[in-house]
């Protein structure tokens, strides 16, 4: 398992990194997926720019009523962030469900999101959170929604030379409850199916629902039909069940050694129902 020859640069500043990336280098932001692909020679970048060395991309902070997470914040940083635990527990819960301790120590949110593995955990939560993503290149900066960022399996809207520099998530009020539930593929730890639920209650009625689903299809998505079905309801077991039943409808589900398409769809429904129930139970 020997990678092809490549150059490696660990720049000190983001500008330097963006300059190198503009000239054809590829970003390395933890390497939990890229390095194994290189060792199997499924990827052979000629020049790697290691973003983890950049201090100015590793932060988790609150500003302007939102939470800003630098791309190189590790899963462990996120999992153990007191700020996130208090203000965006969905993200800490999701980070804690990723892979194993070693992966969480090395892997980063930016690397995971930009890699866009269809079974990665974050995208479900980030869809449910309607996260915003700051994309930067040497010459530009733009912000995309989750719906626009995740295009297809292993494909995002990122252009060559562009990196994901920041993830922005909202701060919910105390009437909001969240939950992320997954069935892990036992070898890889990735989600066979993972569902993130985010619900808000007002005067006994569910006023707001966001459901993000990962692992089921080519990319994480929001289950909007299920969201609509639950909004305005009281959140009874029957309400949840009939909403959850819609999460996989019309989805072209993945099928592999670990789970058939039918089973994945079934799991999506079960996990959606359970995540919604848990999220509701967490409303203060």
């Amino acid at each position: 398992m020997f990678a092809q020859k490549f150059e490696y640069t660990a720049p000190k500043t983001l500008d330097e990194a963006l300059h190198l990336l503009a000239n054809g280098a590829k970003p390395l932001a933890g390497g939990m997926s890229l390095i194994p692909m290189m060792k199997l020679r499924l990827a052979a970048p000629e020049h790697l720019v290691d973003l983890r060395a950049l201090k100015d991309l590793n932060y988790i902070r609150e500003a302007g009523g939102q939470l800003h997470i630098g791309a190189t914040a590790s899963h462990y940083d996120i999992e153990s962030s007191a700020l996130l635990r208090q203000k965006c527990p969905l993200l800490t819960e999701t980070a804690a469900a990723i892979g194993d301790v070693q992966v969480r120590n090395l892997g980063t949110i930016g690397g995971s999101v930009a890699h866009a593995d269809p079974a990665a955990d974050y995208p479900a939560a980030l869809q449910a959170l309607e996260a915003k993503f700051v994309l930067r290149s040497e010459k530009s900066e733009r912000t995309l929604s989750a719906a626009d960022l995740f295009v297809d399996a292993l494909t995002t809207a990122l252009q060559p030379g562009e990196i994901l520099s920041e993830v922005i998530v909202p701060i919910d009020d105390t009437r909001t409850g969240t939950s992320y539930l997954k069935m892990a593929q036992p070898a890889s730890g990735f989600a066979i199916v993972g569902v993130a639920a985010r619900v808000r209650q007002n005067a006994g009625k569910i006023s707001f629902v966001r459901i993000g689903v990962t692992g089921l299809s080519n990319r994480a998505y929001r289950a909007t039909a299920a969201e609509k079905a639950l909004e305005g309801k009281t959140g009874s077991a029957a309400d949840i069940q009939s909403a959850a039943a819609l999460v996989a409808r019309g989805v072209d589900a993945n099928s592999d050694l670990h789970a058939s398409a039918d089973y994945r769809k079934h799991l999506a429904v079960v996990h959606a129902a359970r995540a919604l129930k848990t999220a509701l139970s967490r409303i203060a």
Binding site: P36, L40, D100, Q185, P186, A187, S188, L257, H258
Partner: peptide, 14 residues
């Protein structure tokens, strides 16, 4: 088809 540890599920400590 289970030729990597990403697909071959060894028992894990957890």
């Amino acid at each position: 088809t289970t030729g990597e540890l990403m697909d071959y599920a060894l028992p894990r400590a957890h």
